[in-house]
Amino acid sequence: MTATDNSRDNKDVWRPHVTVACVVADGDRYLMVEEEVGGRIAYNQPAGHLDDFESLQEAAVRETQEETGWRVALTHLIGVHQWRSHEHGDVVVRFSFAAKPLSHDPQQLLDTGVRRALWLKRSEIEDLGDRLRSPMVLMSIDAWLAGQRLPLSIVSDLMPGGGHP
């Protein structure tokens, strides 16, 4: 690599969207988000983008609270999924975590675009069909149901200050 190659503009470097999601189970029901995306109603787990200076685990907990009003504790990493979004055409790399619900604030204002949080059975989620935000929704639930649970320690956090500047 030449000096010119080293100094190439950051715009030339391809970057996927790094996202997190939480499978939050309560018996046979799963916490879901009904949201407006590109002029349509879509359903997803609580999920969102990783912010700068934030660990993946912090992002998963934050996104769940912002989108649902539920405070959760992560229990496991379910998997890492890669997919090309039909919404924007970019690649998404999604870290799916399992979490247990701790407490709910029904007065909390939810993220922009989120209409409501709801608890659905797996069959009800599957029945949503193309209204699911991505195939990763059922993929992560099915992986959790199949017993796919990796220790949280598998995801290293080397951010200064434990994830915050």
Rank of each mutant, 00 (worst) to 15 (best):
D90R: 11
E126C: 02
H76E: 09
Q57V: 02
A98H: 00
E54K: 02
F97Q: 07
I141E: 09
E124S: 10
E87S: 10
E58H: 06
V92C: 06
Q148H: 14
E126T: 07
L50A: 10
P101Q: 01
S7C: 06
G163C: 08
H104V: 08
L118A: 10
R40G: 10
Q148W: 11
E36P: 06
T19R: 03
R149K: 09
V20K: 04
A47K: 04
S134N: 12
L74K: 04
L77W: 00
Q57H: 09
N6W: 02
S123F: 06
V24G: 07
T4Q: 11
L158P: 01
S156A: 14
R40A: 13
E126Q: 11
R71S: 04
E54Q: 09
A99M: 00
S156I: 13
S85I: 09
D5W: 00
D142I: 09
F97E: 07
D157M: 08
V80M: 06
N44R: 11
H49M: 15
H164G: 06
I78S: 00
D28C: 02
Y30C: 00
E36C: 10
T4P: 00
D90K: 09
P151G: 06
H104A: 06
V61K: 04
A25N: 02
R133A: 13
E63I: 01
M1V: 08
I154K: 05
V80P: 02
Y30S: 00
E58A: 07
R84L: 09
K11E: 13
Q107W: 13
R84M: 07
G162D: 14
D28I: 00
R84I: 12
Q57P: 01
E58K: 05
P16W: 05
Q148C: 11
R8H: 13
V37S: 01
G162H: 14
F97I: 08
I78E: 01
D52E: 10
T4A: 13
G39T: 11
G163T: 05
L132Y: 02
T68W: 01
A143D: 15
V72C: 10
H88G: 03
T19Q: 05
V80E: 11
L145A: 14
E126W: 03
T112R: 15
Q108R: 15
P106Q: 07
H17R: 11
F97N: 09
W119C: 03
R115V: 10
T64E: 00
M32H: 06
E54G: 03
D52T: 07
V18G: 03
P151E: 04
